[in-house]
Structures are given as C-alpha cells and as structure tokens.
Design a protein around this nucleic acid. Structure first.
Length: 419
RNA sequence: GGGGGAGUGCCCGAGUGGCCAAUGGGAGCGGGCUGUAAACCCGUCGGCUUAGCCUACGUAGGUUCAAAUCCUGCCUCCCCCA
C-alpha cells in the first residue's frame, strides 16, 4: 500500500502524533529501506479485567500489523511492581509477582483476539528481561539523562507535589523504565492513551541520548464508556468487559448513547466503530453518511457493531446467539417470545400450600430472580411481575406445575415444580 | 519517635444524644416513554409473609430512660513534624 494511504489509515482516530510529521517520515523511511516499522505497545499488567477501552490501542496496533509492520507488545511485569503514576493522585499499591504473572496471562489471552499472532508480525517481551538485571551503575547512567525539573513539569507529579501528597521516589523511575524499554527494542513508534503522553515522550528523549532515531509517539483518545460521557473505567461502572458474557456484552454495546456529549448526532456510534472496532476511515465515513441520510437506522448500526465486537472476543456463534436473544428480549414482545428465550429451571421444594397457592416473593427468591424476598415483594407491588404472560399484582397466587415467570424486561424463566 | 485526622448502607458522602433503617448523589431494580438495556420522567433501593419485628453506622466494652452521635481499649487507613 502506498505511503499516503497508510498514513490515512494509521492516523485515523488518533489524538496526537508527536512530532506531527513523524509518522510520515517513519513510513517513508521504512518504505525506502524495505523494512517494517517496530511498533511498541506497553502493557501494565495490574488490572486483570480488560475492557473495550483497553482495546483501542490494540486495534491500532493491529492496523499497523495489517500494513506489514511489526508489533512489539511489552508486558511491563517489572514496571508493574512500581505502578504507573499517570493520572493517579495517590501512589499505587505494588503487586506481587504472582499477581502480575496471572494478569499478564489474562491480558495476552484477550490481546490475541485482536492482534495478528503471526510470529513475523508480533513479538511479546517482558521488560523484566532487561530491567531486572540492571545494576546500580547502569541505573545511575539512565537516570542522569533526566532532570528533576523535567519530571516535575509533568502534571500528575506537579499536582501531587503542590497539594503535598506523597510521591514515592520509585515513581519517578517509572517513565525512566518505560523509556528504557523503547531503547531496548529500538521502537519506531509507540502507542498509548493520551494519558501516556509523558511516558511516550520520555522514550523519545532517552533514545536520542543513546543515539537512536527517536520514536514517534502516537496517542489515542480515551474511549467513553456506556454513559457516553466519562472515559470507560471499571470504577465508573460504565465499562464493557472483554470477558463479559455474550448477551451482556451485546446489550451493553446496544446501550451506548448515539451521541457523545456535544460531538454530533451519531458521534458515539462512529467513534466505537473507529476506536473499539478499528474500522478503516472510509468505512467509518460512509457509515456516518448513511446514518445522517437516514439510510441506516442507528439501532441497526449499533446492532452490527455489537455483533462484531462480540464476534471478536467470543466468536461468531456467540454473537449470533446474543443478537437473537437481544431481539427476542426487547424487540418482540409477548408470551411466545418470552417462552423462546426463557431458561427452564426446576425448584427442589414445592412452595405451594395445601390450598394450591404460594407466597410469590419466596418463589422468586428460590428461582434466583431476586436477591431477597423483600425485593420480590417490591417488584410485585410495582407491577413488574408477569406469570404466564399475565400481570400478577398479588403476593400470593395459585400456581400450576409449570409456569412462565417474567420480571421486568430481562428476567424470564420457566419454572417447574416438583410433582 | 512526636502530633493531628478519619473509619456510616453496593460506591461516594451527610448526619455530633431522642424526630435515624439513617439527607443527598451515583450504580442497581420496577414502571412510563422510545428505534434501543440510550436520553428523559416517576417510583424503589438492609432483612423478614412488612400498619410490626430483627439486624446495622470499623471492632469490643462502658455511660444513659435513650447512642451512628459521649467515654475507654483494640484494629485499619491517612496527613503533618522529626
């Protein structure tokens, strides 16, 4: 592919390219020398649960691979012992090596679903390989290339410093270690979220001191979560986990708003295509046009998006099932649709009294549809319970041997009582 | 080593002796509306066959007719000085 097209694809959806002309230069150079670019992505194996936000840089990395470049995934097993101070107002707790190991495995399992694992295009390295054996002399040599003032200009540190919160000395070393990773693998490009900008630039600096061609930093925007406002994060409860069950993942994608706050009518939909799915710029553009013209219904656009996302992580079969399930649950109404998707379950005890009636809150609790009988009572009082398709407003009711229970729109079960 | 502060329901966070199962926000849940599990509106949100009762405000005791609120010990976390 020619250089211009490559640049178009690679710079799509990117927050910043530093320096601005850097990507172009690197690509032209690679073309001239007929060698692939080395594209680095550093991974901090601290959180075991990955979500779609984490997938953004991985998608970009995959685009590089697809254009023939070489991805180097650095598992920061060593740096994880320090914890990235980026965006943190407090020192992160250090992890044990076992935790780091387990997290790294979870990470790579997920990452392989996005990346091309052709060994010519992907290399995985643990940075303990070179960092663990650094001796103090080498460390001094490394650190002498950075200045305290240089580190302090960084926002995270400055804020903490000014507000008199503690900054561990070891935290100063984080950018240094990460920068050294870039030296070690001679990275041409490094990817990261916008919050990683400082660390990526530190890599540039250090490479220069080691007389290497400095890497180009490519930062990617942070993906908004399902609320369409804040960045996706587990602590905001707006994340879509890569290990979610198919139906849940599908539904969560369907629940993203069309529009990200103040960014155009279908901006969230197109953004997810671009960032979470890594669709190419022309595809995203034509999708946006179709949505604007009304040719494509936003619901269908999201449904396709959800399908593809589920298919990536859990397979096409799961995606198909999740889609069918979603439609049966929310598009088609009525008892027949409910019967199709309801799970069957058998209660071990018969809750009925001699007169054939049963206290429904207990039945709901036994069936695992509510977590307490008080909650069951509430649901019934609020008009959320249907038995065999009929609204049931009484706490006690006569029950047959098999019946369909529906609570709200989502929970549906066919209950069988022991005879 | 010395001094100070804090621990409240799933999370954040009010509450400083009775009016507290505990304000408010978020998440969750139910209803309405809708192209959607979006947005918005309404309701609900410890447990219990619930006009009542039980358990709860770090933990163990104590004072009091009455404690999340006062006292003491213990545990945990944080900050400042050295």
């Amino acid at each position: 592919m020619n250089a211009k097209d490559q640049i178009d694809i690679l710079s799509a959806g990117v927050a910043e390219i530093l320096p601005a002309e850097g990507l172009k230069k690197k690509i032209l150079e690679a073309e001239k020398r007929k060698r692939p670019l080395i594209v680095k992505l550093g991974v901090d194996p601290t959180a075991p649960d990955l979500h779609l936000g984490h997938a953004v840089p991985l998608r970009k990395l995959r685009q590089f691979q697809d254009l023939g470049h070489k991805a180097v995934l650095i598992i920061g097993d060593f740096t994880a012992r320090v914890g990235d101070p980026s965006g943190r107002s407090v020192t992160r707790p250090a992890l044990t090596t076992d935790q780091v190991k387990a997290n790294a495995k979870t990470y790579t399992d997920q990452a392989f679903k996005i990346l091309d694992d052709d060994p010519g295009k992907l290399e995985i390295k643990y940075n303990s390989a070179w960092l663990a054996s650094l001796d103090f002399a080498k460390l001094l040599e490394l650190t002498s290339r950075f200045t305290v003032a240089g580190l302090l200009v960084r926002d995270d540190f400055m804020k903490r410093y000014k507000s008199e919160q503690m900054i561990g000395l070891h935290e100063f070393l984080y950018p240094v270690m990460q920068a050294y990773d870039s030296v070690e693998i001679e990275a041409d490009i490094e990817l990261g979220g916008t919050d990683q900008k400082f660390n990526l630039l530190a890599g540039r600096q250090l490479q220069e001191k080691y007389e290497l061609e400095p890497q180009v930093a490519l930062t990617l925007p942070l993906l908004e979560g399902t609320d369409g406002a804040k960045k996706m994060s587990k602590s905001y409860d707006n994340h879509i986990g890569l290990t979610f069950e198919a139906a849940d993942m599908f539904g969560k994608v369907m629940s993203i708003p069309d529009e990200a706050a103040g960014q155009g009518r279908f901006s969230m939909i197109t953004k997810y295509y671009q960032l979470a799915l890594g669709s190419l710029p022309d595809e995203v553009a034509s999708l946006g046009a179709k949505l604007e013209s009304g040719e494509l219904h936003p619901r269908d656009a999201k449904s396709q998006l959800a399908w593809q996302i589920v298919a990536t992580y859990l397979g096409e079969k799961s995606a198909e099932d999740a889609k069918a399930d979603f439609e049966a649950r929310f598009k088609v109404k009525g008892k027949d649709a409910a019967l199709q998707i309801a799970d069957k379950m058998k209660l071990s005890k018969d809750p009925r009294k001699p007169d054939g009636t049963a206290f429904l809150p207990h039945v709901l609790k036994e069936a695992g549809l509510v977590s307490s009988s008080s909650e069951g009572r509430r649901v019934i009082e609020q008009g959320g319970l249907r038995v065999d398709g009929e609204l049931e407003g009484n706490l006690e009711a006569r029950l047959g041997n098999e019946f369909l229970i529906e609570i709200g729109k989502r929970k549906k079960k066919i209950i069988t009582l022991p005879s």
